[in-house]
Protein backbone atom coordinates (compact mmCIF):
# COMPACT_ATOMS: atom_id res chain seq x y z
CA UNK A 1 0.00 0.00 0.00
CA UNK A 2 1.32 3.40 -1.07
CA UNK A 3 0.37 5.35 2.03
CA UNK A 4 2.26 2.98 4.31
CA UNK A 5 5.45 3.06 2.26
CA UNK A 6 5.19 6.80 1.92
CA UNK A 7 4.71 7.11 5.66
CA UNK A 8 7.85 5.14 6.40
CA UNK A 9 9.91 7.27 4.03
CA UNK A 10 8.31 10.37 5.53
CA UNK A 11 9.07 9.32 9.08
CA UNK A 12 12.72 8.73 8.24
CA UNK A 13 12.94 12.06 6.42
CA UNK A 14 11.38 13.90 9.36
CA UNK A 15 13.85 12.27 11.71
CA UNK A 16 16.82 12.85 9.43
CA UNK A 17 15.99 16.54 9.02
CA UNK A 18 15.41 16.90 12.75
CA UNK A 19 12.36 18.98 11.85
CA UNK A 20 12.19 21.62 14.63
CA UNK A 21 8.38 21.51 14.87
CA UNK A 22 8.54 17.73 15.19
CA UNK A 23 11.28 17.88 17.83
CA UNK A 24 9.20 20.36 19.78
CA UNK A 25 6.18 18.06 19.64
CA UNK A 26 8.26 15.05 20.67
CA UNK A 27 9.87 17.07 23.46
CA UNK A 28 6.55 18.24 24.85
CA UNK A 29 5.12 14.72 24.62
CA UNK A 30 8.01 13.38 26.69
CA UNK A 31 7.81 16.27 29.14
CA UNK A 32 4.09 15.98 29.78
CA UNK A 33 3.96 12.18 29.89
CA UNK A 34 7.22 11.97 31.83
CA UNK A 35 6.09 14.46 34.48
CA UNK A 36 2.70 12.77 34.83
CA UNK A 37 4.35 9.36 35.11
CA UNK A 38 6.84 10.49 37.76
CA UNK A 39 4.12 12.12 39.87
CA UNK A 40 1.85 9.08 39.51
CA UNK A 41 4.70 6.78 40.53
CA UNK A 42 5.76 8.91 43.50
CA UNK A 43 2.29 8.85 45.02
CA UNK A 44 0.99 5.65 43.43
CA UNK A 45 3.70 3.14 44.37
CA UNK A 46 3.64 3.88 48.12
CA UNK A 47 -0.18 3.88 48.06
CA UNK A 48 -0.30 0.56 46.20
CA UNK A 49 2.35 -0.96 48.48
CA UNK A 50 0.50 0.23 51.58
CA UNK A 51 -2.78 -1.32 50.43
CA UNK A 52 -1.03 -4.49 49.29
CA UNK A 53 0.80 -4.92 52.59
CA UNK A 54 -2.28 -4.46 54.79
CA UNK A 55 -4.63 -7.22 53.63
CA UNK A 56 -7.32 -6.50 56.23
CA UNK A 57 -7.53 -2.79 55.51
CA UNK A 58 -10.89 -1.32 56.41
CA UNK A 59 -13.14 -0.68 53.42
CA UNK A 60 -11.00 -2.81 51.08
CA UNK A 61 -14.17 -4.41 49.70
CA UNK A 62 -15.11 -1.02 48.33
CA UNK A 63 -11.67 0.49 47.77
CA UNK A 64 -10.23 -2.26 45.58
CA UNK A 65 -13.13 -2.41 43.08
CA UNK A 66 -12.85 1.38 42.99
CA UNK A 67 -9.14 1.15 42.07
CA UNK A 68 -9.87 -1.52 39.47
CA UNK A 69 -12.49 0.78 37.92
CA UNK A 70 -9.98 3.62 37.94
CA UNK A 71 -7.55 1.44 35.98
CA UNK A 72 -9.95 1.65 33.05
CA UNK A 73 -10.78 5.35 33.25
CA UNK A 74 -11.64 6.65 29.77
CA UNK A 75 -9.08 9.41 29.09
CA UNK A 76 -11.68 11.59 27.43
CA UNK A 77 -13.86 11.45 30.56
CA UNK A 78 -10.88 12.42 32.71
CA UNK A 79 -10.15 15.20 30.21
CA UNK A 80 -13.68 16.51 30.49
CA UNK A 81 -13.53 16.38 34.29
CA UNK A 82 -10.22 18.27 34.39
CA UNK A 83 -11.48 20.72 31.74
CA UNK A 84 -14.49 21.61 33.89
CA UNK A 85 -12.27 21.79 36.96
CA UNK A 86 -9.84 24.24 35.32
CA UNK A 87 -12.35 26.21 33.23
CA UNK A 88 -12.94 29.85 34.15
CA UNK A 89 -16.23 28.81 35.68
CA UNK A 90 -14.64 25.81 37.40
CA UNK A 91 -13.42 25.59 41.02
CA UNK A 92 -9.75 25.75 39.96
CA UNK A 93 -10.25 28.31 37.19
CA UNK A 94 -8.02 30.76 39.07
CA UNK A 95 -4.96 28.59 38.46
CA UNK A 96 -5.08 29.38 34.72
CA UNK A 97 -3.99 25.83 33.93
CA UNK A 98 -6.50 25.21 31.13
CA UNK A 99 -4.79 24.90 27.73
CA UNK A 100 -1.36 24.62 29.37
CA UNK A 101 1.05 21.67 29.69
CA UNK A 102 0.52 21.79 33.47
CA UNK A 103 -3.17 21.03 32.99
CA UNK A 104 -2.26 18.16 30.66
CA UNK A 105 0.10 16.73 33.29
CA UNK A 106 -2.72 16.90 35.85
CA UNK A 107 -5.09 14.98 33.57
CA UNK A 108 -2.54 12.32 32.66
CA UNK A 109 -1.54 11.90 36.30
CA UNK A 110 -5.19 11.14 37.11
CA UNK A 111 -5.27 8.52 34.35
CA UNK A 112 -1.99 6.88 35.40
CA UNK A 113 -2.47 6.94 39.18
CA UNK A 114 -5.05 4.12 39.55
CA UNK A 115 -3.03 1.93 37.17
CA UNK A 116 0.09 2.37 39.28
CA UNK A 117 -1.80 1.77 42.53
CA UNK A 118 -3.71 -1.27 41.28
CA UNK A 119 -0.77 -3.04 39.64
CA UNK A 120 1.63 -2.24 42.50
CA UNK A 121 -0.93 -3.60 44.95
CA UNK A 122 -1.31 -6.79 42.89
CA UNK A 123 2.48 -7.14 42.56
CA UNK A 124 3.03 -6.75 46.30
CA UNK A 125 0.25 -9.23 47.05
CA UNK A 126 1.85 -11.63 44.60
CA UNK A 127 5.01 -12.09 46.68
CA UNK A 128 5.16 -14.78 49.37
CA UNK A 129 2.72 -13.80 52.12
CA UNK A 130 5.33 -14.80 54.70
CA UNK A 131 7.92 -12.35 53.31
CA UNK A 132 6.88 -9.31 55.38
CA UNK A 133 6.87 -11.43 58.56
CA UNK A 134 10.31 -12.80 57.69
CA UNK A 135 11.62 -9.29 57.04
CA UNK A 136 10.26 -7.99 60.32
CA UNK A 137 11.86 -10.96 62.10
CA UNK A 138 15.19 -9.99 60.56
CA UNK A 139 14.79 -6.54 62.07
CA UNK A 140 13.30 -4.50 59.22
CA UNK A 141 11.36 -1.33 59.98
CA UNK A 142 7.97 -0.87 58.29
CA UNK A 143 9.64 1.29 55.67
CA UNK A 144 12.38 -1.24 55.02
CA UNK A 145 9.76 -4.00 54.82
CA UNK A 146 7.77 -2.09 52.22
CA UNK A 147 10.87 -1.20 50.16
CA UNK A 148 12.23 -4.75 50.20
CA UNK A 149 8.83 -6.16 49.29
CA UNK A 150 8.67 -3.75 46.34
CA UNK A 151 12.11 -4.84 45.18
CA UNK A 152 11.02 -8.48 45.47
CA UNK A 153 7.91 -7.60 43.43
CA UNK A 154 9.98 -5.71 40.85
CA UNK A 155 8.55 -7.62 37.87
CA UNK A 156 5.04 -6.53 38.80
CA UNK A 157 6.13 -3.00 39.72
CA UNK A 158 7.86 -2.65 36.34
CA UNK A 159 4.61 -3.80 34.74
CA UNK A 160 2.85 -1.00 36.63
CA UNK A 161 5.33 1.58 35.31
CA UNK A 162 5.06 0.24 31.76
CA UNK A 163 1.27 0.08 31.80
CA UNK A 164 0.95 3.60 33.19
CA UNK A 165 3.45 5.00 30.67
CA UNK A 166 1.78 3.19 27.77
CA UNK A 167 -1.66 4.38 28.71
CA UNK A 168 -0.75 8.05 28.94
CA UNK A 169 1.73 8.46 26.11
CA UNK A 170 -0.87 6.97 23.75
CA UNK A 171 -3.96 8.74 25.01
CA UNK A 172 -5.44 11.58 23.02
CA UNK A 173 -8.79 12.33 24.65
CA UNK A 174 -7.52 14.11 27.74
CA UNK A 175 -4.63 16.07 26.23
CA UNK A 176 -6.85 17.24 23.36
CA UNK A 177 -9.55 18.58 25.67
CA UNK A 178 -7.33 20.00 28.39
CA UNK A 179 -4.38 21.09 26.24
CA UNK A 180 -6.32 22.39 23.25
CA UNK A 181 -3.71 21.13 20.74
CA UNK A 182 -2.14 24.60 20.39
CA UNK A 183 0.69 24.51 17.90
CA UNK A 184 4.04 25.06 19.60
CA UNK A 185 2.57 25.04 23.08
CA UNK A 186 0.29 22.11 23.87
CA UNK A 187 0.50 19.97 20.74
CA UNK A 188 1.74 16.44 21.49
CA UNK A 189 2.22 13.47 19.20
CA UNK A 190 -1.24 11.98 19.62
CA UNK A 191 -3.11 15.23 19.04
CA UNK A 192 -0.85 15.95 16.08
CA UNK A 193 -1.80 12.55 14.65
CA UNK A 194 -5.50 13.34 14.99
CA UNK A 195 -4.98 16.72 13.36
CA UNK A 196 -2.93 15.44 10.43
CA UNK A 197 -5.47 12.67 9.86
CA UNK A 198 -8.29 15.20 9.78
CA UNK A 199 -6.30 17.30 7.35
CA UNK A 200 -5.97 14.24 5.14
CA UNK A 201 -2.17 14.06 5.59
CA UNK A 202 -2.32 10.33 6.22
CA UNK A 203 1.36 9.77 5.47
CA UNK A 204 2.50 12.40 7.95
CA UNK A 205 0.01 11.12 10.53
CA UNK A 206 1.31 7.60 10.13
CA UNK A 207 4.89 8.84 10.35
CA UNK A 208 4.05 10.52 13.66
CA UNK A 209 2.48 7.26 14.78
CA UNK A 210 5.69 5.40 14.00
CA UNK A 211 7.70 7.93 15.95
CA UNK A 212 5.33 7.47 18.90
CA UNK A 213 5.80 3.72 18.67
CA UNK A 214 9.57 4.10 18.54
CA UNK A 215 9.54 6.37 21.61
CA UNK A 216 7.42 3.85 23.50
CA UNK A 217 9.81 1.08 22.58
CA UNK A 218 12.88 3.02 23.70
CA UNK A 219 11.21 3.88 27.00
CA UNK A 220 10.09 0.30 27.62
CA UNK A 221 13.55 -0.96 26.75
CA UNK A 222 14.97 1.39 29.38
CA UNK A 223 12.41 0.27 31.99
CA UNK A 224 13.29 -3.35 31.30
CA UNK A 225 17.05 -2.78 31.59
CA UNK A 226 16.45 -0.97 34.86
CA UNK A 227 14.40 -3.86 36.21
CA UNK A 228 17.01 -6.45 35.23
CA UNK A 229 19.81 -4.42 36.73
CA UNK A 230 17.97 -3.86 40.02
CA UNK A 231 17.31 -7.56 40.18
CA UNK A 232 20.95 -8.56 39.78
CA UNK A 233 20.19 -10.59 36.69
CA UNK A 234 17.29 -12.73 37.86
Amino acid sequence: MDTLAEALVNALKLLRDMDPALLETVGLTLQVTGAALVIALIIGIPTGAAIGLSPGVRGAGFLIPLIYTGMGLPPVAVGLFVYLLLSNQGPLGGLDWLFTPTGMVLAQTIIAFPLVVGLTMAAVRGVDAQLPVQLRALGATRRQTALTTLVEARMGVTAAVVAAFGSIISEVGAVMLVGGNIEGRTRVLTTAIVLETRKGNFALALALGLILLALAFVANFAFYRLQVRRGGGS
Partner: peptide, 17 residues
Amino acid sequence: RRRVTTVFQHPVLLRRS
Protein backbone atom coordinates in the same frame (compact mmCIF):
# COMPACT_ATOMS: atom_id res chain seq x y z
CA ARG B 1 13.45 -6.08 68.40
CA ARG B 2 16.77 -6.49 66.60
CA ARG B 3 18.24 -8.57 69.43
CA VAL B 4 15.90 -11.42 68.46
CA THR B 5 15.31 -13.25 65.19
CA THR B 6 13.41 -16.27 63.91
CA VAL B 7 14.14 -19.05 61.45
CA PHE B 8 10.82 -20.29 60.11
CA GLN B 9 9.82 -23.75 58.90
CA HIS B 10 9.64 -22.50 55.30
CA PRO B 11 12.50 -20.09 54.69
CA VAL B 12 11.59 -17.05 52.60
CA LEU B 13 14.74 -16.07 50.77
CA LEU B 14 15.08 -12.92 48.69
CA ARG B 15 15.41 -13.14 44.92
CA ARG B 16 19.11 -12.40 45.13
CA SER B 17 22.32 -14.34 45.48
